[in-house]
Write a protein that binds this DNA or RNA. Structure first.
Lengths: 350, 350
DNA sequence: ATAGAGTGGGAAAACGTTCTCCGAGAATCT
DNA sequence: AGATTCTCGGAGAACGTTTTCCCACTCTAT
């Protein structure tokens, strides 16, 4: 019932605590016979090392804090999953902190995690500006990597999706399937996703010479805004609507259907992120899939690097290229959609 | 830079470590003047108690392990969120373990959490049978509450949704809006959700005297099965399809639309769980909303109870009544759906 | 005056590890 | 043979708290 300690294993195997620790941790060579006796005793008593004591002594808890704005944001669960797996593969555990999209809660959670002596922090920042202070302060104490959302330059390592590439993929695709009257529905925030995707859209349309057309409407990253934006955009008779994320796109899809507009016949719609719903929308949504696994792997890798080294060296900014996922919502107008759903791609499983 | 300890606060305030601990923890009355000096010094040095040391000494980490099958299952994020908030409100932190739907991984994660000295475990079991051993073993060491999914009787406290009530709500609703030729698409597994929802469906249809009709098709809890099941059910010309969860229902919706069947005109469709997608489907899905916040609160409450008491006493089984959410997919046939979406209910926010 | 209770404070033991010394014996070198 | 290294093992300090003693002192009641 009560836990078995090193002392008891030592007594049972007739040697010292130090020796038992050594053979179990493999930290120094130990005589074959002694080792056997120790292992035997440990086995018999069902000894399990107390990680708290180990942490106190060795000043490392083997624990990483994962701080995010809102686990219910549909893009995060898969990211959390990958991060969790990557960390567990290194024998680390994840302390989860959901911030309810509130920077003050975020600051408090970060402080709490530091008190709990996490070895490192992985943070998806709530807000570009308002998170900065807390993040910077935390980065002074412990290796810290920002994930997905930035937080000002030079604060900490950041690994994120290359929004410019993603937007370019979308626009190339639309143009190459004959769309010309393209418009953009984005978000007005100051977050990196909002800013970068808008900037990329504008740069790319210019590069492609589509600059004549192009209403741009900015709201927020929500379904409701997607629905509302359709009404503001429709009068200019576009043949494609590029949305800054999937939620906006799905909202747009809903409103367009309601108004009897044919997608993709009259208008193509694209999203960004590839959340699970994107594949389920009707028509299934063409979108940009963030390289979730690679993002997680890279972030964990960077953490490992700082944990191994002295946690100094320059801040890194890693941008990973996303992937275009073409589905029915952007099918060429020529093919008059008998079975538009066949474009659906398989799940990201494995 | 390096952390401030009790010793340093003691030295700075000219008193002993014991006294500092006492005033900061408020564990014993201490002279007013001394207390002031201590607090002042602590403040000035920026002292933060080391939770690991505290945990080692007081044999309590203030940490709870949350073990779940797959964070990407769309029903879980909101549950995780509520659990996390409820626990944090008590000053506890959450150690997250995602099991990848694998009972062996689950067992390993549970063992790891126990080594990390979690004060308690909150487990959404992967499998009714295969999780039993690991859960039972863990329950012997630490307060443990099962959430959402059971794991055999008497293993541990269990708080879950009352599937029978939920199914009754659905059937009453369908019957009272004129549906009679009702059929069921469920899952064949041995998990409590699969078994209970099927049993409840059968009991309730019998009670309502609908027993003449009623094909029942069993597959799994997936979109694909929902799509496939439609083809097997359609020949019997039902006017309502009751699905064992939302994924199945959304799959069914998709296939029905593809076949040109009018929902809800020809056939009503209902789901179970109220995952975020349910509201976004077209038509929006009538479903049973699990009382997520209450589930989390009750589970945490039970944990607290066992943490306070001696972790004995009988195992409890708490069933919470869910709520029917009527949306467009089950609108009465009479009202020939001008704007079927208006039935949509607001988000669960706040 | 003296015993008894009550108060404020310190010294030091514990919690379960890891790790630094240190010593005893065996093996290797000159 | 004596000096040096190596190997194996133990004693005990340390990690930063909490908590148990214990002491010194001040009140109050006899």
């Amino acid at each position: 019932m009560t836990d078995v300690t090193l002392r008891e294993v030592a007594r049972a195997s007739g040697c010292s605590v130090a020796t038992v620790s050594r053979v179990l941790a493999g930290t120094r060579p130990v005589g074959a016979e002694t080792a056997r006796k120790v292992r035997e005793a440990a086995e018999k008593l069902g000894y399990r090392p107390n990680q708290v004591a180990r942490a106190l002594r060795s000043r490392s808890t083997g624990t990483v804090g994962l701080v995010l704005p809102q686990i219910t944001n549909p893009f995060f669960p898969s990211l959390v999953r990958e991060v969790e797996h990557a960390l567990h593969a290194e024998g680390r555990a994840v302390l989860l902190a959901d911030c309810d999209d509130d920077p003050e809660v975020e600051a408090a959670r970060i402080a709490d995690l530091l008190d709990r002596q996490v070895d490192a922090l992985l943070i998806i920042a709530v807000d570009e500006r308002q998170s900065r202070d807390a993040v910077a302060k935390a980065a002074a104490h412990v290796p810290l990597v920002l994930l997905d959302r930035g937080c000002g330059p030079g604060i900490a390592d950041l690994v994120t999706t290359d929004n410019a590439t993603g937007m370019a993929l979308v626009l190339d695709h639309l143009v190459s399937t004959g769309r010309r009257r393209i418009c953009f529905v984005g978000a007005a925030g100051t977050g990196s996703a909002a800013v970068e995707r808008l900037a990329a859209y504008e740069a790319e349309t210019k590069a492609l010479g589509l600059h004549g057309f192009g209403p741009v409407e900015l709201g927020d990253f929500s379904l409701e805004w997607g629905r509302a934006a359709v009404d503001r955009i429709l009068p200019s008779r576009p043949d494609a609507v590029v949305c800054a994320n999937d939620l906006i796109a799905i909202g747009a899809l809903q409103r367009l259907r309601q108004l009897g507009v044919d997608v993709p016949g009259d208008i193509a719609v694209t999203g960004f992120d590839d959340i699970p719903m994107a594949d389920l929308a009707d028509p299934a949504l063409t979108t940009v899939r963030q390289p979730v696994r690679a993002l997680a792997a890279e972030a964990v890798h960077l953490l490992g690097h700082r944990l191994a080294g002295q946690n100094d060296g320059p801040r890194r900014l890693v941008r990973l290229a996303p992937e275009l996922v073409v589905r029915a919502s952007s099918a060429p107008r020529a093919s008059s959609a008998e079975d538009t759903r066949s474009t659906r791609t398989p799940e990201v499983e494995q």
